[in-house]
Design a protein around this nucleic acid. Structure first.
Lengths: 344, 344
DNA sequence: ATGGATCATATAAACGTTTCTGCCGCCTGT
DNA sequence: ACAGGCGGCAGAAACGTTTATATGATCCAT
């Protein structure tokens, strides 16, 4: 078979109709079960469909039905396993309903995200699941939300009441910090997320609650805002650990940055957890495989993606979003935290 | 704004035409630069587009133009960072050309992959980048390729000459094995990939070349076929290491399984690399962060995805695939290999 | 028998584009 | 002055569906 064979235009309903000696409407009726048709003719149609290898032109259907059976999923980057897990959840919910998921990676497209709204308006997608991440919430989210249904994941926008699927970030953050503080640490530094993100703020707030609870002045704890990427964890750890006296506990707003921080520690010969304790957030699949195993907070990433997509579908069908609720975040206590000065 | 406001149908070309007091064809001409139109009227149209917030209905365009400006990307699972990296490469190449990428995860859809071919036939996507992975190559790939252009990534199908982007798997495998063997190991086991996959076969062939080169009978080395997932690395390591005498070198066909193997070693108190050396394949971003740092082979994942998508676009435009070539694979020598009996 | 249901089918009008075709007026070279 | 070309525009036909409407049958109750 040559390439040009493939170009040969595919059969249309008209072809099927001719082959089955019925009208196109009859074909449509049997294909969609949308009208009565005699068994004998129905079979003729079905046969024709088979022999011609017909499948409907979805562009035409979409045009007529004004729906694309497709949603957009904007994710900051797939190489962050947390995002990848959420993406799988979204994809799973979508494919269960036979809707397609188009991947939108804002960084990959140089143009301003204004294009996302245009994409939505162009009716190629019916709605979007928005996974905010690296960087701050773009102003264009307003355009987006005006153009069609949007469901946020792990994020919330104070001004607007967009449906959002989040988890107990604040509680999880408070608890993991409290656990670490309970080991006796007094010199602490936080490697934060992008200050513009709600989630980062929530986690920070949780940490501060824990600080206060441990009798530490929250304002005395330095916060180094990062971008949720490993490299930024690495670099900020360098800054944080150059303080004198050196912090004995590094609280990182996500696992990737915690890993970057541990990478730095290894480079400069600081032992984790003997010299410095580290905690993360997310519980990536391989966080438990590091040495030391990372103490962190597990977010139900897959579930969050699944719920977000489901909420979007409800929105599309009933014009109302089901309760999206808050999912549990559970702290995972492992080996990367130890009392300060614990030595070897 | 209420949800129902959003449902209000979007403006069409007709609306724009009316507002600008021109015909729809004129609107189309200015929007596509496809015909001469007087500057004054052109501006009227552009203004109307702005005030009405018009954006073209892509379903209608697709119908007329018989092209969806969308490709499919089938990936076995996003949580394998190698796949995620390839996916990002694909996405990047696509968004540079303003084409959408729809994510297809075969496992997520319970139905047989026959649907993928149907998706392609339905003209919702113009072609697909196929990332084979876990499991063996489905027979349905034939249907797929018959339905439209397909470019394979990191895989090849003996019978067919589908365009494919691969890297020097065999050479990389040979070299990394040779390096490990050079340390003196004689008792070796291989944790392989799915036997049905070309890539897995290539890597295995490379290993065997190295065995022969080191004076080892390739047939005497046990091969445990896995599925490229971490759990399978874990379980197969258990099997492989229960041999007596115990192998001192575990060659894994990808990093994820190598990590699973190391996980198992840790569980049962075997030290890596003192008691058993481990090598992987892929060089995932965090493989260098493990303890010990994993010796492996780097594949240019991002580049492979990018090239595959680019090749697909050429196929779509010129009906001929550019040279897809073979990308380099470079071995990364790190700490997970040490001479046998190296002790502490 | 016959009037109305009910069933089965065909015809045709949309859906929102692109683009072919044709029309009008103007310029240009003779 | 006039044929031909061309810039600038509008009209209408397509693209492949879905679905409202129209048209015949058939069937039952009167």
């Amino acid at each position: 078979m040559t390439q040009s064979d493939r170009r040969r235009s595919r059969p249309t309903m008209k072809d099927v109709a001719r082959h089955a000696r019925v009208s196109v409407s009859t074909v449509s009726y049997v294909l969609n079960d949308s009208g009565p048709v005699a068994p004998e003719r129905r079979n003729r149609v079905l046969d024709a469909v088979r022999v011609l290898e017909y499948s409907p032109n979805e562009s035409a259907r979409n045009l007529k039905l004004r729906s694309a059976s497709t949603i957009g999923m904007v994710v900051p980057e797939l190489t962050n396993p947390f995002f990848a897990m959420v993406a799988e959840g979204v994809q799973k919910a979508a494919s269960a309903r036979d809707v397609l998921v188009v991947l939108v990676v804002p960084d990959a497209t140089e143009q301003p995200e204004e294009n996302q709204a245009k994409l939505l308006r162009s009716q190629r997608i019916d709605g979007v699941v928005y996974l905010s991440g690296t960087g701050s919430m773009p102003a264009s989210i307003y355009d987006l939300a005006r153009s069609g249904p949007v469901v946020l994941v792990d994020e919330q926008i104070p001004g607007m009441d967009l449906p959002a699927v989040v988890c107990e970030s604040r509680k999880g953050a408070r608890e993991v910090a409290a656990h670490a503080l309970g080991q006796g640490h007094r010199r602490v530094a936080v490697i934060g997320g992008p200050p513009g993100l709600w989630t980062a703020q929530q986690r920070l707030a949780g940490y501060r609650e824990a600080f206060a609870g441990a009798g530490l002045d929250p304002d005395s704890v330095p916060v180094f805002p990062g971008d949720y990427r490993q490299a930024s964890g690495h670099d900020l750890a360098a800054r944080a650990l150059s303080d004198d006296p050196r912090p004995t506990l590094l609280i990182c707003t996500n696992d990737l940055m915690a890993i970057g921080a541990m990478e730095y520690c290894r480079e400069v010969g600081l032992r984790v957890p003997e010299d410095v304790s580290v905690v993360g957030f997310d519980d990536l699949p391989f966080s438990a495989l590091l040495t030391p195993r990372l103490t962190t907070v597990r977010q139900p990433a897959h579930e969050m993606g699944f719920r977000a997509a489901s909420a979007l579908f409800e929105l599309l069908e009933n014009d109302e979003s089901g309760a999206v609720g808050e999912l549990p975040a559970t702290v995972q206590i492992r080996d990367s935290v130890r009392p300060p000065g614990g030595g070897a």
